[in-house]
């Protein structure tokens, strides 16, 4: 059963050996050239499965991968039960929101410490689990890098996602994410990344800084 048409994959609900699973199928996109399309789908499928596994090793909750079919660009993975932060965040009390954002920051730090860049950090890609942890999904744009620039872009993306989709609470949420990040990496390392975030913003189109 198709439950979501994403930008690069269709998400189906299914069963696999008696388990409820998600089938993430990267479909052909008619808008792009066949050469580009085939290479992207195949690469991202294999890569996503690998990085989800690495992130789990880093201590970040991620779905369990059951099967990868590179030629069909399909991954079968655990169906994660819980609510997306996108819908959850606006309903929470300030205190609960802060706590949750702190967890998000810690998850990002755990990935970065293992040189994993998520590449698409939005509140739609985070699910609150029953045990109170935050599960990260959709590693389709993830990659390995130990560069400050890439870590900065990662944090810049979540900041912008907050500013656009959760503009009422964006500032406090991002402050708390930074707090969570610092708590694992230490102040010195974190500040370097935060400095990069500012730099990326200034580099963007038309930033007015007085």
């Amino acid at each position: 059963m198709l439950i979501k048409k994403g930008a690069e994959a269709n998400i189906h609900l299914g069963e696999w050996n008696g388990r409820k699973v998600i089938e993430k199928k990267r479909i052909t996109k008619e808008y792009r050239l066949k050469e580009i399309d085939t290479a992207l789908r195949s690469y991202r499928t294999a890569h996503e499965a690998q990085i989800i596994h690495e992130a789990k090793k880093a201590g970040v909750p991620t779905p369990i991968i059951y099967q990868v079919d590179r030629s069909a660009s399909t991954i079968i993975m655990e169906r994660v039960e819980g609510e997306r932060l996108k819908e959850l965040l606006p309903r929470l009390s300030a205190k609960a929101r802060r706590k949750l954002c702190r967890l998000v920051g810690q998850n990002i730090a755990r990935m970065h410490q293992r040189d994993i860049i998520h590449g698409d950090l939005t509140t739609s890609n985070m699910i609150l689990l029953e045990n109170g942890e935050v599960c990260l999904i959709d590693f389709g744009l993830s990659y390995f890098s130990d560069e400050l620039e890439d870590r900065g872009v990662d944090l810049h993306l979540i900041k912008r996602a907050l500013n656009s989709a959760h503009y009422r609470v964006a500032e406090s949420c991002f402050a708390e994410i930074k707090g969570g990040y610092v708590s694992l990496t230490g102040r010195r390392q974190a500040e370097e990344v935060f400095k990069k975030v500012n730099e990326i913003e200034k580099r963007g189109r038309y930033s007015e800084r007085m």
Partner: peptide, 19 residues
């Protein structure tokens, strides 16, 4: 042109799926 527009279209589709 193909690559530049495909990138833009993918980003747009991701955004459209989101909001």
């Amino acid at each position: 042109q193909e690559v530049a527009f495909a990138m833009l279209t993918e980003a747009t589709e991701r955004c459209l799926a989101l909001i």
